[in-house]
């Protein structure tokens, strides 16, 4: 059962919204492989199935106006922040109505409106950007915080350490969240990192590092909320390792054969969605039918998103050379 802190005192509406968000993220992602195989999408496609509790828990702990910045497994992150699944699906289709106008694709989703500052395809590359966003927020005294998500592989990159050092040095309001799904493509954490308890990696910078069950949306929510409160009060950066698992391969072209069936089974049993569903039924009196209705509604939203993407136009040829520069 979920180790729920009753002190969270979350409204049932918020709990149901978390459930709904995770269902939406899951169903959105699970609709993609078929569309990809039909040739509706191109390029890379890194699906978030299994990791929903991290993005949804973190997003619910944030306020409107806070920054989120992420890597290339970010469909779920931007949707959790409130992006319309229609414009995300349209982007995966490469359509003109896509959130990045068809120029970004799966790995490069952003929303200026939602302060979702992008998905980035170079492992670890966006971590220093998070420090800069935090510096801007602190300097301008906006009260914003920055939630920066990345995978376990990023913690082995040089810029991870540069960003950790500079975040602590300038005391910026940044919450670094490592989504440790156990593998950098096909290489396990144990074979890539000398320190396998990744939350320990911030200790060299005297930045608090904590590990959380990334399959438990409430646990993620709680820890991120604490880190955000601390950052907003001028307490500086935090680092969180969320232990999670991707139910699919690294990308659409990866069958994930390097992982044993037993291992997959163990993690499947920890699926964050039925886990929260069970909690809602057992402790919050939510009827199974209500959860089924949420699923049906979110499936409908995904279907509408696909329909929107299908019906949307391709970018016009004259869009090729726009958006390179702001001036001239």
């Amino acid at each position: 059962m979920l180790p729920i802190d009753d002190g969270l005192k979350l409204e049932i509406a918020e709990l149901l919204q978390m459930y709904r968000d995770m269902v939406l993220l899951r169903e959105f992602e699970e609709s993609c492989p078929k569309l990809y195989s039909q040739g509706k999408m191109g390029g890379f496609l890194h699906l978030y199935s299994g990791e929903e509790a991290v993005g949804v828990g973190a997003s619910h702990a944030m306020q409107d106006g806070d920054y989120m910045i992420s890597a290339y497994r970010e469909h779920g992150h931007i949707i959790a922040r409130g992006a319309d699944p229609k414009v995300i699906m349209a982007e995966l289709f490469g359509k003109a109505t896509g959130i990045s106008r068809g120029k970004g694709g799966s790995m490069h989703l952003a929303s200026a409106e939602l302060n979702f500052m992008g998905g980035y395809g170079i492992v670890g590359g966006h971590l220093p950007l998070a420090v800069g966003l935090g510096y801007a927020a602190k300097y301008q005294q906006t009260g914003q915080v920055v939630v920066c998500l990345f995978g376990d592989g990023a913690t082995n990159q040089g810029v991870f350490h540069e960003a950790m050092n500079m975040a602590a040095l300038y005391h910026v309001p940044v919450i670094f969240i490592c989504e440790n799904n156990g593998y950098g493509i096909g290489t396990s954490v144990e074979r890539a990192s000398s320190v396998t308890e990744l939350y320990k990696k911030s200790c060299a910078y005297e930045t608090p590092g904590n590990r959380v069950d990334g399959m438990n949306v409430l646990a993620v929510y709680q820890l991120v909320r604490e880190a955000i409160a601390r950052a907003r009060e001028g307490g500086g950066p935090s680092y969180i390792e969320a232990a999670t698992y991707r139910f699919r391969g690294h990308s659409i072209s990866d069958p994930g054969n390097y992982r044993s069936p037993q291992e997959k089974k163990i993690w499947q049993e920890r699926d964050p969605i039925p886990k929260l569903g069970k909690y809602l039924q057992q402790h919050k009196g939510v009827a199974p039918a209500q959860l089924e209705t949420i699923l049906a509604e979110e499936l409908q939203r995904v279907a509408a998103a696909i329909e929107f993407a299908e019906a949307s136009p391709e970018p016009a040829a004259d869009q090729l050379m726009t958006d390179i520069y702001v001036e001239g």
Partner: peptide, 23 residues
């Protein structure tokens, strides 16, 4: 006028993020 560590990628990345954040 900010003295930085010797971390060129960090400097440019931080500056990039600060620019995106309105500076």
């Amino acid at each position: 006028v900010i003295d930085t560590p010797i971390a060129e990628a960090g400097i440019i990345g931080m500056a990039c993020g600060a620019a995106m954040g309105g500076l």
